[in-house]
Each structure stands twice: as structure tokens, then as C-alpha cells.
Simulated assay, not measured.
Amino acid sequence: MKKLFKFGLAVLFSVSVFSMNFTDVSAEPEQDMKQVQKVKLTEEQKRELDTLYKEMLKTKKQIIMKYEEFGVISSEKADKKMEWMEKHYEMMKENDFIPKKRHHHKKYGKDEKTAQ
């Protein structure tokens, strides 16, 4: 009797798990990004975003300089970080401050070359 009860519970659990609605959650952000790509900003909106990005860049540079001053990071690392931030700002400016979809070359933690 106990075996039959345990078997019934196992079957009930299995049926309930397999009957759940499994959806692909990753599809929604992709749709959102497609919607963002279609938007065209006005010159005023671009100027406003440019001002905000410049303020953010200035603040981040101050933070990096403080880390360098306190000895948390080296001068070389600080320079590389600031250079990357400048390049990122220029890229955003070229793209009219509309974020582009990121292309991930790694799947499941493996590089495509090593997966083959």
C-alpha cells in the first residue's frame, strides 16, 4: 500500500512538472532591443543625453583617479579604464546615443572555437 502511494505521488509530481508552461524568457529582451533600434531621437534629446554622458564620464574618471590615488589600481590600469570609457562615449555618440544589441560570442561558457 505504501509503495502504491509513493508511486502515485511520483506520477502526480511528474505530471505536474511536465504540464508546466515553459517559455523562452530570453526572447523578450531581444524584442525590446528591436523596438529600441527603431527609435530616432531628436537633436534636443541627443544633446540632453550627451550632457548626461559627459557628466557620468567625468564622475567615473574622478572615481578611477581616487582608486589610483588610494593604491587600489595601478596607473596603467587607470589609464586603460579611462581610455575605454572615452571610446565607449565616442561609440555612443556615433550611434546617436541609442544602445546597440550586444553580440555574445560565447555560448554556455564555451568559446565557439573550442565547442567544435
Rank of each mutant, 00 (worst) to 15 (best):
T59D: 06
E48N: 13
L57Q: 07
S19N: 11
K54M: 04
S14Q: 02
K58N: 08
F22T: 08
E43H: 11
F18Y: 15
T23Q: 13
K58F: 00
R47S: 11
K61T: 12
L4K: 14
Y53C: 08
K58G: 00
K40A: 09
Q31I: 05
V11E: 01
T42S: 14
Y53L: 03
V11G: 12
K40D: 04
L49N: 07
K40M: 09
K38N: 05
Q45W: 01
L41D: 07
F22Q: 07
L12W: 06
K46R: 12
S16D: 02
K40F: 06
V25E: 12
K38I: 06
L52G: 01
M20V: 15
E30I: 08
R47W: 03
M20D: 09
M20G: 12
M56T: 13
T23W: 11
Y53G: 01
F18E: 09
L12M: 13
P29H: 05
L52P: 00
T51W: 01
S19W: 00
Q31L: 13
K60R: 14
E30R: 03
K6W: 13
K58A: 08
S19G: 09
Q37I: 05
V25D: 11
L52I: 05
K61M: 08
L4D: 10
S14F: 14
V36W: 08
E28C: 00
M33R: 10
K58T: 08
E44D: 15
D50T: 13
F5T: 12
V17R: 01
Q37L: 09
M56G: 11
V36K: 12
